[in-house]
Design a protein around this nucleic acid. Structure first.
Lengths: 198, 198, 198, 198
DNA sequence: TATGAATGAGCATTCATTCAT
DNA sequence: AATGAATGAATGCTCATTCAT
């Protein structure tokens, strides 16, 4: 009887190990040897799960994106305003988990400029996130459905991404509070402008 | 007498070649061989100008940051509001030049998470840019000097960076107009909130 | 199960290959590529056994020193005088094996002037050899224990080393017989001086 | 009128510079760049004097051998016994000058194992030195002309070389006094054996 | 399934050498 | 005569990948 190995579980473990290595030492240090060692394996053991390094890295990015989504999926019972704020503030790099996500995202974003496959993954994840935001922007009455809601959502997402990007480089300047304040300021904007008009 | 070579000119040429390679094929492809070939030289020819690869990359980043600054330095006679808009909208990746800058910036940002020297360069450039923005935010009456102006400026920069980041991955969605619209929306925010109170 | 490889055996094989290359073409020619090829391998195959070139060279020297010691270790049942002569005459470069040893030793001696680790290994080996000689010098009644025996031993070792050094460069002049005669002459010296007084 | 440059003087200067670099950092560090810099020149300036690196190194060895000879050439008025002792004790590595000579000699000896030209130079120098020693060994009545004197001289030279070799590696153990004592012991040997028979 | 030995291409870097100036 | 820019081959080393076990 062959040993039963959960392929997906194993892949996730390896992707987690890769993410840890990337966050700790940069994507250049993420050699197969290093990642395998981080996961408690040897190089060759990766092969059944990922045929090439590219596959491992692509899966790692996808796992990071999926995890970000999963972490804040449960907003069913919340008021639209609270849900929107939760959706935008949640991913900020304020704890080790989210910081890991952003570091990994950034590493892959750099790769993506010259790798259409990674770029497509990023784009896809962005569009999903964007439609969630649009939905809540509409539901909370911040903008009319259609282009207005899209622009408004893009502005909000840009604020989140911009803050997160800066925060990665200067945690001293960008305390948790300041990050959240910046996103709240962006939110307040549509409060006072769009909605006051309503 | 040996051939006379303009050291700084040559360095700039090489940094430009490096930037082109990075933008086209990613920072991993920016080996000394590739960069030298892109510049029309052989590997060893780089040595008199950059002793190590690190030096070449650091210079390339610095050159990209400097160029961004230089490109929009002449706002002496403009009204503060126009100058601010120019300062924020100018760097958006709407043409090959600015796109190159952002691609390079992103590549280095990823490296910077594991390279303190590069991180310091990024941080320094950010702080300079931030103080320019603060100055104009104050001059245009969008915020009081001090923390309020700082937060407001950070919000605006975050908007620019966030938009630029997304635009790199989806030039179809993020047309020039849409990028500018998003930044204008962020600007409109302090128009309608802070200034309407005045 | 991976292929089972005897680490020490493989290391010895590689050190032997290195010694052969050094003896044939000089230590400068002993690149990883050359040594690997001499051993019938490719460059990267050395890595599991020697992480760096330094390690390979240090091991090669040590192996050569160890082999010299091992070759003449069995003098248990001999008279002190015979054992001493055996100990001193044995290492002379009179056959391919000992010539190889001396060529390697010389190559490393030159490196050692700018490499403290190699110098320490040489010194250590010398001190061990010296204490063996001292023991037999005393046992054979050629000198009193203490400084007198030390000086006498050093004189004998110097004779051996000096002869070996010259012999490496002029095998025509330094036939096996002449090498042995020179060492015997040095031995005769303490026979006739110190011992005749007894 | 072209600048008058003394070719031989320039070559000697460069060989001295090479010797200093070799003694200080080992022969591997003696690149053309380093040697030129040590002499206060640039790489290309060596070319008119030495077409290749090999030439420079060969000349450096020859210069070191010549200097050793020159340093102790003036023994015209001395008693044969004193002259012999002077000839043997003089080259011992007891001061910076002679230590430099030995370090260089050793470096080249290692190269010589795989370089017939260098080996020939060493052999030639040895034979010259040997004939000087033989002459004085005979003149001082330590041995009959012919094979006996040759063997006796070889024994003495071997003592000197052996002591010098060891002394290079352990200057703590091999003080000036101990080096001289060892050579004197070798000399005493022919005093007490050969000559007492006379 | 998992190992880790082995391959061979690729890297940054060093350097002897050439040569226009 | 002298410079030092440029070449291009070599080096030590890393690493994704393959594969016998």
């Amino acid at each position: 009887m062959p040993k039963v190995v959960d392929l997906d579980q194993r892949r996730s473990d390896l992707a987690d190990a890769a993410a840890r290595v990337i966050a700790r030492q940069g994507i250049d240090a993420a050699s197969l040897r290093t990642v395998a060692a981080e996961a408690g394996w040897t190089t060759g053991a990766l092969v059944p799960y990922f045929a090439t390094k590219r596959e491992l890295l692509a899966f790692t990015l996808q796992a990071s994106l999926d995890r970000r989504r999963a972490r804040h999926a449960d907003r069913a019972g919340m008021a639209p305003d609270d849900a929107l704020r939760d959706l935008l503030v949640g991913p900020l790099p304020t704890d080790p988990d989210t910081t890991l996500h952003w570091t990994v995202t950034l590493a892959f974003a750099a790769q993506a400029s010259s790798d259409p496959e990674l770029a497509a993954m990023q784009r896809e994840a962005y569009l999903q996130f964007r439609s969630s935001v649009i939905e809540l922007v509409v539901a909370s009455g911040r903008a009319e459905p259609g282009d207005q809601a899209a622009v408004e959502s893009e502005r909000l997402i840009a604020a989140v991404n911009g803050v997160a990007l800066q925060a990665l480089f200067d945690r001293d300047l960008w305390t948790d509070e300041r990050q959240i304040a910046a996103v709240d300021a962006a939110l307040a904007c549509s409060d006072s402008s769009s909605r006051s008009r309503a």
